[in-house]
Computed example of a mutant assay.
Amino acid sequence: MASLEERLTNMFAPVVTALGCELWGVEYVTGGPNKVLRVFIDKDEGVMVEDCEKVSRQLSALMDVEDPIAGEYMLEVSSPGMDRPLYTLDQFSRYVGQVVAVKLRVPFDGRRKFKGVLTGIEDSDVVVAVDNEEYLLPIESIEKANIVPQF
């Protein structure tokens, strides 16, 4: 069975695309007293506040009709930002050569956290070079991954 994030991604993608944006990712955070549904959108020319407002209104209406989340939650729509999270192999492939921070669901080679240069994609693995050693990290094992901005 698909996760809630996967179901929401499938439900939101056509709406976000119709509004001229790309659905970058969906996160549902339940820790603490408040539930937060984060929706990240992107555009080649950059995401403006107006884009977030349009998408938020449409997704809010869709959520009211479909009602996939029980109880109260806060809907946040924003740009992925400079430290953008990465969710798919396609997104990883766009950032080859960049520094990434990756956290795995279960340890691989005795560790869960990797920070290094994203050197490529091999089949369904993300390849990260850490201290002159390459690690092939299966996409399904990645809990969280972000670009690390370099200044």
Rank of each mutant, 00 (worst) to 15 (best):
D109L: 15
L89H: 01
A13N: 04
F92V: 05
K115C: 08
E133A: 15
P14H: 00
E133H: 14
L23A: 04
K115D: 01
V148S: 04
L136Q: 13
L104M: 11
V65L: 14
A129N: 11
I69K: 06
F114I: 07
M1A: 12
K54D: 08
E72V: 14
E5M: 08
M48N: 15
P85C: 12
V36S: 07
E66C: 12
E6G: 12
D123L: 14
V15Q: 01
F12M: 01
R38T: 09
I139C: 11
L89Y: 09
G20D: 02
E76Y: 08
A18M: 00
G71F: 15
L86N: 06
I139F: 02
L37H: 02
Y135T: 00
D125P: 04
A129M: 02
F151E: 01
D125W: 09
L104Y: 02
K113A: 07
S124Q: 15
V49G: 04
S79Y: 06
G97Y: 08
M82L: 07
V148M: 08
E143Q: 13
E45G: 15
D83Y: 01
R105K: 09
D44H: 11
E27H: 05
M1T: 11
M74N: 12
I69P: 03
D125I: 05
A70D: 14
K54T: 01
V126R: 02
L62F: 10
V128C: 04
S60P: 11
E50D: 13
P149H: 03
E5K: 14
L59D: 07
M74S: 13
D131P: 03
L104V: 07
D123Q: 15
P138S: 05
S79W: 00
W24I: 09
D64H: 11
D131V: 08
P107D: 01
M1W: 15
G97V: 00
S56M: 15
P68C: 03
D83S: 06
L4I: 08
E134Q: 05
G25M: 00
R38V: 09
D90F: 09
T119A: 02
F40I: 03
S141R: 14
F114H: 02
Q91A: 02
G110Q: 03
Y87F: 12
